Amino acid sequence: MEKYGQYRDKGSGIAPFFPISAQASGVYLPFHIFLFVCRVPLLIAVSVTYFLLFSWLAVGSLIKKAALWCLLGIPGVWWVDIQIDGVKRGSLAKHQNRLPQPGTLIASSFTSPIDCLYLAAIFDPIFTSSYPNNRLVERISLYTAILRALSPPKLTPSPTARLLPLHQLLSENPDSAIVVLPECTATNGRGILPFSPSLLTAPAKTKIFPVSLRYTPADITTPIPGAYISFLWNLCSRPTHCIRVRIADAVYNTAASSSRPNGTKSPLSKKPNSYETNFFDGMNIGDSLSDADTLVDNIDGDNLTQEEMKVLDRIADDLARLGRVKRVGLGVKEKDDFLKAWKKTRKVI
């Protein structure tokens, strides 16, 4: 791996884009093959039924969650170790206010398609896609969010994507939590990438819950895009998988209540049909969005203020602490370069 040394973090030596090798099956290979052959057709059948039928029907969230738990249970993802900062084990029911609720944001780690599947089964949220150096997000479906974990990283949104700030998305969907994947691309879970500034468009009074998801074994992470067969084999050939879920105390976007720096002109102000103009002219927002008009609306996400950097650093530090990993200086651009070098010598299966 020496030839990929430039894709290791200089400070820690962590390589967040390398795939994690699966443990050899050994004498259990026939049993693993049996599990794989039995599970994959069933998993495909339930997935097709859910995404082509249930996700479009006006059925209750309980029915959808039950179907999602079936999707998790078929490959053996049925042991979940969940813990909340400052909450003793066994007393989770007494601290429901420490969990993400409708109207809050979930800043989640991003390592596997199972991430979004689990979050959907628990919180029934809205998923978004973030992009480097862009403060706006794109609303996506659960299916798209799962595919993004197996897709190449995107440096910029597609020309047809509808981008909007988080405060507008929260206002339009007050009965749902919203998932933000601030790292913008999947990793192997061994480091936290630099964040997109999209979280900075959250209102000052909205709770942001850092949520870390880790897996045992860790070979179901998907840092290499397109590895569908490898992912399915690692997922369906093992008897069980454990999800380790850690939720930090809520963080607030304290930068949202700060006024714009002197001389900073918002690019949105040049556009009469901007999201900011349409949103604030046509709606009567409540207390939770009262400070949204003071957000720094630099769409490109450049020139972060010191307070904005503190907000992103706090959430990134929480995710690193919860996952027992370190933050790294490698981002989406470095992963894109890594994949180009990787494909020259490796064949993704």
Results as ranks from 00 to 15, higher is better:
Leu319Glu: 05
Arg321Tyr: 01
Trp342Ile: 09
Gln101Ile: 00
Gly301Asp: 04
Tyr252Ile: 05
Ile243Thr: 09
Ser130Gln: 07
Cys70Thr: 15
Phe36Gln: 04
Lys347Trp: 11
Thr206Asn: 06
Tyr143Cys: 13
Asn234Gln: 12
Pro30Thr: 09
Trp233Asn: 02
Leu147Glu: 08
Lys333Glu: 14
Cys184Tyr: 04
Leu42Thr: 08
Ala255Trp: 08
Arg238Val: 12
Asn173Gln: 09
Arg214Ala: 13
Asp337Gly: 04
Ala24His: 10
Ser259Gln: 13
Phe34Asn: 10
Ala248Leu: 05
Thr254Pro: 01
Asp336Phe: 03
Leu199Gln: 01
Tyr118Asp: 00
Leu42Lys: 10
Ser198Val: 02
Ala149Pro: 04
Leu53Trp: 13
Ser108Gly: 03
Gln83Trp: 09
Leu68Ile: 05
Ser25Met: 10
Leu312Val: 08
Glu307Arg: 13
Ala145Met: 06
Val40Lys: 03
Asn273Pro: 02
Arg148Trp: 04
Gly103Val: 00
Ile208Trp: 00
Pro100His: 06
Ile74Leu: 08
Asp287Met: 10
Thr305Pro: 02
Arg135His: 01
Asn298Gln: 13
Tyr4Ser: 09
Ile82Tyr: 10
Ser257Ala: 12
Cys242Ile: 15
Leu295Val: 15
Leu170Lys: 02
Gln306Glu: 14
Pro132Asp: 00
Leu330Ile: 09
Pro223Ala: 01
Leu235Val: 09
His32Trp: 10
Phe36Thr: 11
Asn284Ser: 12
Lys94Trp: 12
Met309Pro: 01
Val77Asn: 02
Phe51Gln: 01
Lys270Cys: 07
Phe338Ser: 00
Val27Gly: 03
Ser158Val: 02
Ser212Gln: 09
Gly263Cys: 09
Ala256Asp: 08
Lys88Thr: 12
Pro217Trp: 04
Ser108Trp: 01
Arg214Asn: 11
Trp79Ile: 15
Lys310Gln: 13
Gly191Ile: 00
Asp336Arg: 14
Lys265Gly: 10
Asp318Ala: 14
Gly90Tyr: 00
Tyr215Pro: 03
Val251Met: 08
Gly86Met: 07
Trp233Pro: 04
Ser259Thr: 15
Ala66Ile: 13
Ser55Asp: 15
Leu169Cys: 07
Asp297Lys: 14
His241Thr: 11
Asn298Ser: 14
Trp233Phe: 12
Tyr215Asp: 08
His32Gly: 12
Lys154Cys: 10
Ile82Trp: 08
Ser176Gly: 02
Ser237His: 03
Pro152Thr: 10
Pro157Ala: 06
Pro174Lys: 06
Gly11Ser: 13
Phe279Tyr: 15
Lys310Ile: 11
Ser290Trp: 05
Arg39Tyr: 08
Ser230Met: 08
Gly5Trp: 00
Thr264Val: 13
Ser61Phe: 05
Gln306Pro: 06
Leu42Glu: 06
Glu183Thr: 10
Ser108Arg: 00
Ile224His: 05
Arg324Ile: 03
Ser198Cys: 13
Leu57Gly: 07
Pro75Tyr: 02
Leu200Gly: 07
Tyr28Val: 10
Leu295Glu: 02
Val59Arg: 10
Ile126Phe: 03
Ser230Gly: 12
Leu169Ile: 09
Glu276Ala: 13
Leu71Ala: 07
Ser198Leu: 07
Gly90Asp: 04
